[in-house]
């Protein structure tokens, strides 16, 4: 644990020192979030509710998504860079240290821009989420579990690169899950809905936690914890097996 904390601290120092087109990117992030909010306001201006989802609950969903995705893409930003790290041989650094390489990599890099999403999500919850102590506690718990699941999903898909040498599934999977998580899961029916609870577990990233905050049920909580546990095991297995096939960026020929 103290190992992880030390890396986290270094990652923060690193992030604040790293020059970036910071304000441009924060502007982009805010523009993106505001455009989605505008969309939902306009949408619910015409449509009172969709299959049990009204404006308030969709804002709650969006607040959870922004916070959880902000945590993953901001504080654990290497979660989505596994293919890149593997292809360039950047895992060597992690592998020469006496700690878990996955844990080291995940906390090694902070993207401050996405941290802005966290602020946005929390503010949105405070403004539109009717916060009470109970709802706030459920919000926080839901966000933490959702972020864990999202991280595990990204690591699992990213680890495909060890076996196929291709990073596209990781990139496409990230866009897919973030897109799908941004809409009420109940707009889908049948098999499509089933997929969102299983293969691409987008439902658990925002819709289910939003439902838990609004109407807590043990069934939802159990489902969500189960899905998260499954993906955490998958991620660890895929990454672990992948490491055995790691080529350190030198497919061949390099000394």
């Amino acid at each position: 644990m103290s190992q992880t904390l030390a890396v986290v601290r270094a990652a923060f120092t690193d992030a604040t020192a790293r020059p970036a087109a910071f304000w441009t990117q924060v502007g982009a992030m805010v523009a993106n979030d505001l455009a989605m909010i505008a969309f939902w306001i306009l949408f619910f201006h015409q449509v009172r509710s969709v299959r049990g989802w009204d404006a308030d609950r969709v804002f709650l969903l969006f607040a959870i998504l922004a916070t959880a995705a902000g945590i993953v893409l901001g504080f654990l930003s290497n979660a989505r860079r596994i293919p890149e790290l593997v292809e360039t041989g950047s895992l060597d650094e992690a592998l020469s240290l006496p700690m878990s390489p996955l844990r080291y990599l995940l906390v090694r890099r902070v993207d401050t821009v996405n941290v802005g999403d966290v602020v946005f999500g929390v503010v949105l919850f405070l403004v539109t989420g009717h916060p009470t102590p109970q709802r706030a506690a459920l919000f926080v718990g839901g966000v933490v579990v959702a972020a864990t699941l999202l991280t595990a999903f990204l690591v699992t898909l990213g680890s495909v690169v060890f076996f196929t040498g291709r990073g596209e599934p990781g990139a496409l999977g990230m866009h897919a899950i973030l897109l799908l998580a941004g809409y009420p899961v109940d707009i889908f029916t049948g098999a499509a809905k089933g997929l969102l609870y299983t293969v691409v577990p987008a439902a658990f990233v925002a819709a289910v936690p939003a439902r838990i905050v609004d109407a807590p049920s043990w069934r939802d909580v159990a489902l969500m914890l189960l899905a998260t546990a499954v993906f955490v095991v998958l991620a660890r297995t895929a990454f672990g097996l992948g490491l055995r096939r790691y080529t350190s960026g030198s497919a061949w020929g390099r000394g």
Binding site: F43, V50, H175, Y183, F188, A192
Partner: peptide, 18 residues
Amino acid sequence: VVFFLLVSVVLSALWRAA
């Protein structure tokens, strides 16, 4: 194509449900 399909399927599902 995959990305286009994904976005279109999601948005159209929302509107159909609405």
